[in-house]
Design a protein around this nucleic acid. Structure first.
Lengths: 233, 233
DNA sequence: CGTGTGATTGACGCCTGTCAACGTCTGTGG
DNA sequence: CCACAGACGTTGACAGGCGTCAATCACACG
């Protein structure tokens, strides 16, 4: 992890229309700029660890982060990913609790740290910002609820298909239909909630059925419709 | 469902220290009182249905509500319960989306309806209220994340033990250690995320091991320590 | 008393987790 | 330049947890 001059963070944190900070006034933006710190992280770096106290939120300027919980037997469960312009760590800040997840860098990232008391201050004085944060929390809550239902009721096969579709929606495909996120088989299994071997076997089946192509960690999606059908959406 | 004179709702909605409305000013409380409507619901009544538009939140004055999602094969997945002084429906209101869950009455309830635009208005003008709501959403988010990890990684046996412990913490035991919430075996299975028959078999095993006693839907918890051990917490 | 809902038990088999062995690739150090 | 270690991926064997189907029982209610 390396501290950077704040200017190194492009303005994706606060000026883009989908930014969580879009409703701050220009005075508040100035304050944000003067307090935030920008860091560079490399693959594998841990931003915060489950159980640790965190004193602020992190806004992703670039890169990809995985957010996971560690189960009682030590196995990771990936809860979600975060990419550019997304905010992480706010749950612990607002609840004033230790982090309940670990945030680890999947692809080299530039990340802005925003002190928690500043976030709280903005919530209290800027109703529109409060609404945006509330909406963000509620959006994640809705996604979590769907996730619970899926994991509880669907087979591993269905869930893997759904995960591939979600990754496609979140990270897109390149010109040759390859998923624009690189995950190990183990990480895939930690999203689906299954054993690594099961993921490998199912991916092979999908390949045999010409639904996907595999080349190391590159996954080329050939037949979205088939995946949708398998996912039982 | 029967409309009641507002006075029929005791003041648990807004005056108790743990109420979500505890930080409203007296002016705002007056406004809340003039806009809220109070209804009586009976077991089985549906407060709102997945997919429907809801125009406000509901604050439980008394009774117990189950919140569930319906999976693609029609099976219910119970996400959580709500009891006195708890707020439901706020996710849809703030995100301005259709409800993603169904709320159904388990035990006869008195419930206050609060128009959504009033909630939004309070969030925007009262920073402390906004913080409380944000904390509520974040608290549920943290619980949902734990739930995801448990369902993904634990066995049905572990999850059932954990569910019994959670029910004990949420609804308590009476003088003779009987859980103070009455659920069908199917509802239990819809929390755990398993088949009804599996719940029945595991409950019988717990009974054989003298961990619980069963009498119809009454579950008497004899050995909390054993449950904790089984739950692998 | 018939009907319906919920609870229970047994039989059966498949999905899926676990264990083990082996192959592949990359980076490191001698 | 090669050997080796270590991480990751793959495949096979195997068992058992758990879902499904079916039959029966218990109980409440009109």
């Amino acid at each position: 992890m390396k501290a950077l001059n704040s200017l190194a963070c492009n303005d994706s944190c606060y000026s883009k229309p989908q930014s969580i900070f879009r409703h701050l006034t220009s005075d508040e933006i100035q304050k944000l700029l003067s307090f935030k710190e920008t860091f560079q992280f490399r693959r594998g770096n841990v931003i915060y660890t489950e159980g640790s106290r965190i004193t602020g939120c992190y806004c992703i300027s670039s890169g990809i982060i995985k957010i996971y919980k560690t189960g009682s037997d030590g196995k990771e469960q990936i809860i979600r990913f975060a990419k550019a312009a997304e905010l992480i760590g706010f749950r612990s800040v607002f609840n004033n609790e230790a982090a309940c997840t670990t945030a680890q860098v999947l692809e080299d990232s530039i990340i802005c740290y925003i002190p928690g008391d500043l976030m709280v201050q903005f919530v209290k004085i800027n109703g529109n910002f409060a609404m945006d944060l509330l909406q963000l929390a509620c959006k994640e809550l809705g996604e979590a609820n769907s996730y619970i239902t899926d994991i509880a009721q669907k087979t591993v096969r269905e869930r893997l298909a759904e995960v591939l579709l979600n990754l496609k929606d979140n990270f897109g495909l390149n010109q040759v239909q390859v998923l624009q996120i690189s995950l190990t088989r183990e990480e895939l299994s930690n999203i689906v909630g299954t054993a690594t071997e099961s993921v490998i076997r199912l991916l092979s089946e999908f390949k045999d059925d010409q639904i996907i192509e595999l080349q190391g960690r590159q996954i080329r999606i050939l037949n979205t419709a088939a995946l949708t059908k398998i996912a039982n959406l």
